[in-house]
Amino acid sequence: MPTVLYLKELMARDSSPLTPRSYGMDLLRWFRFLWVLGVEWDRATREDARDFMLWMKVADKPVRVHWRHRGKAPSEIPPPRSDRPVPGTPNPVTGKPTVGTKYSPRTRAHCETVLRQFYDFHLDGNVGALLVNPFPLVRERRSARPGSHSDGEKKHRNRRTGLYRPTVPQQIPRRIPDEKYTEVFAGLRSHRDRALLAFWVATGARAEELLTAKQGGAIVGEQTIGVIRKGSREYQELPATPDAFVWLRLYQEAAWKMGVPRGRHHPLWWTLRRPWRPLEYDAARMMFNRANELLGANWTLHDLRHTATFLMLDDPNMPPVYVQKILGHKYLSTLDIYNCPTRDDVIAAGLAHHARQEQRRKEPPVPVDEPSYNPDSLSILFGRNVS
C-alpha cells in the first residue's frame, strides 16, 4: 500500500507518534474521495485535487456518535442541548469561536500539505504510474525591485506554497483571566486535576508534555518538574509554584493509599479508577472540558500554556529569552505573537476611551477670557498720537 510506505517514512524520520495518525486521517479522507470517483490514487489529476479542495470547503464534517448512542435509532438519541452556542459562533464567555460544522482553513491547509508531500515522496521513488503531482506548487513569482523590501519580506513573499492551499488566518493567543481561572479551578473534582491545572499554568508546558512526567521528575526541594519536550524529545526541568507541589502531594498521598503504582520511574499522573492506567491526553482534555461546561466556556488545554506565557512576559524582571527556554521554543521570534493586542485588551481600551469621552462631556466648560488689546499698539497701528 502506498500509504504504508509513506507512514513508514514518517516514522523513520523520528517524527512525533501523533504525526502518522494525523497524516493518515488526511490520506484516508483523500482516498475515500477517490474511491467515490472510481479513480486510482496514482491516476489522480489536478482537476481531481481541485475538486477535492472545493469539496472540503463546502462539505460538513462527519458527526461523531457518542459511545452511549451507538447502535440506537435516530429517534432514541436525545436532541442536542439548547443552551449551547450555535456551532461556529463566538462563545459568550471566552469570545472564541466554537467548533463549526465545516472544515476550518487550518484543517484544509494541513490536508493539502500532507497530500502534496505524499505525492512528492512517491514521485521520488517512481511508485506506480504516477507522472505528476496533482497538488502542485504555485509558480515562483518574479522578485520586486532591489531595495524595495527587506530580505526577510522578500523571502516570505517569494516562498512557494501550494496552489490549492487556503489562507490560514493568524490566531492571536488568548489568556484565561484571573477571575475565570479561579472559577475553572473551583470546578475541578479531584486533587489530581487541581495539581495538573496548577502545573500547566506555572510551567507553560504543553498538555502532552506534562503528562509524560515521571514521579522521580517532580523534585520538591528544587521546585522543578521534568518533562519530555515535544519537538527535540529532550528532558527538561521546568520551574513551578509551591501551590502546584502542594496539590501534587495531596493527590499522591490519596492515590498511593488506593494502590496506585509508586516508584521513581512510574508515571506521575494516573486515572482515578481501577484498573490503574497512566493518564492520557484525551482523558485530561475531557476533564478540563467538564470544568469548562460549568461556566459555559470553551477554553482549551493549550490556552493554559498561553496564559502561563502572558504571566511570564508581564513580569518586567523576566527576560524574554528565559521565557523562550521555558516554553521550549527554538527561536525567540516565536514570542512575537504575544506582542499583538488580544481581543480583551482591544475591547478594554476602546471602552476606556468611550468612558473618557463621556466624562469630558459631563465636565463644565472652561471659561475663556475675552481677548484684550494694548491701547498703545492700536494707536501705533492707526497712526494716532501716543501721549
Results as ranks from 00 to 15, higher is better:
residue 278 P to M: 07
residue 269 W to P: 00
residue 320 P to K: 00
residue 282 D to C: 08
residue 288 F to V: 01
residue 277 R to S: 12
residue 255 A to I: 00
residue 281 Y to S: 03
residue 279 L to M: 12
residue 315 D to A: 14
residue 319 P to V: 11
residue 307 T to W: 05
residue 323 V to N: 03
residue 320 P to E: 07
residue 278 P to W: 11
residue 264 R to L: 15
residue 258 M to E: 14
residue 319 P to G: 10
residue 282 D to N: 14
residue 272 L to S: 13
residue 296 G to M: 02
residue 310 F to N: 02
residue 266 H to R: 15
residue 286 M to Y: 14
residue 247 W to P: 01
residue 333 S to C: 11
residue 314 D to T: 06
residue 276 W to L: 05
residue 312 M to Q: 11
residue 278 P to R: 11
residue 262 R to N: 12
residue 326 I to K: 12
residue 274 R to N: 13
residue 313 L to W: 07
residue 288 F to T: 00
residue 329 H to R: 12
residue 297 A to G: 03
residue 307 T to F: 05
residue 252 Q to L: 08
residue 256 W to R: 01
residue 322 Y to R: 14
residue 267 P to T: 13
residue 285 R to K: 14
residue 264 R to K: 15
residue 300 T to N: 04
residue 304 L to R: 05
residue 311 L to E: 08
residue 250 L to K: 08
residue 332 L to Q: 10
residue 262 R to A: 11
residue 293 E to H: 08
residue 256 W to M: 06
residue 320 P to M: 08
residue 328 G to F: 06
residue 253 E to H: 04
residue 327 L to E: 08
residue 274 R to L: 13
residue 328 G to K: 09
residue 269 W to D: 00
residue 284 A to G: 12
residue 249 R to H: 02
residue 314 D to L: 05
residue 307 T to Q: 04
residue 305 R to V: 05
residue 286 M to G: 08
residue 271 T to Y: 09
residue 316 P to Y: 04
residue 309 T to C: 06
residue 309 T to V: 04
residue 321 V to Y: 12
residue 278 P to E: 12
residue 267 P to Y: 15
residue 248 L to S: 03
residue 333 S to T: 15
residue 325 K to Y: 08
residue 253 E to T: 05
residue 318 M to S: 12
residue 266 H to D: 14
residue 324 Q to P: 06
residue 287 M to W: 09
residue 275 P to D: 06
residue 326 I to H: 11
residue 324 Q to M: 13
residue 304 L to D: 01
residue 259 G to F: 05
residue 258 M to F: 07
residue 272 L to I: 13
residue 265 H to F: 14
residue 277 R to D: 09
residue 332 L to A: 11
residue 266 H to P: 09
residue 257 K to E: 08
residue 255 A to Y: 01
residue 322 Y to H: 15
residue 281 Y to P: 03
residue 332 L to F: 12
residue 247 W to R: 00
residue 258 M to K: 13
residue 291 A to S: 09
residue 292 N to M: 08
residue 279 L to D: 09
residue 285 R to E: 14
residue 261 P to W: 14
residue 328 G to P: 12
residue 287 M to P: 01
residue 328 G to Q: 08
residue 285 R to Q: 14
residue 253 E to D: 04
residue 317 N to I: 08
residue 316 P to T: 02
residue 322 Y to A: 15
residue 300 T to E: 02
residue 319 P to H: 10
residue 316 P to N: 10
residue 314 D to V: 02
residue 312 M to A: 15
residue 300 T to V: 01
residue 329 H to A: 07
residue 289 N to H: 15
residue 320 P to T: 03
residue 312 M to I: 05
residue 315 D to T: 10
residue 325 K to F: 02
residue 292 N to P: 01
residue 282 D to I: 13
residue 317 N to S: 14
residue 262 R to T: 13
residue 283 A to W: 15
residue 303 D to C: 01
residue 277 R to M: 12
residue 306 H to K: 05
residue 263 G to R: 04
residue 300 T to K: 05
residue 323 V to T: 11
residue 308 A to W: 01
residue 278 P to C: 11
residue 280 E to F: 11
residue 301 L to M: 07
residue 317 N to F: 11
residue 330 K to W: 10
residue 325 K to G: 07
residue 305 R to A: 04
residue 297 A to H: 01
residue 305 R to M: 06
residue 316 P to H: 07
residue 253 E to I: 03
residue 296 G to S: 02
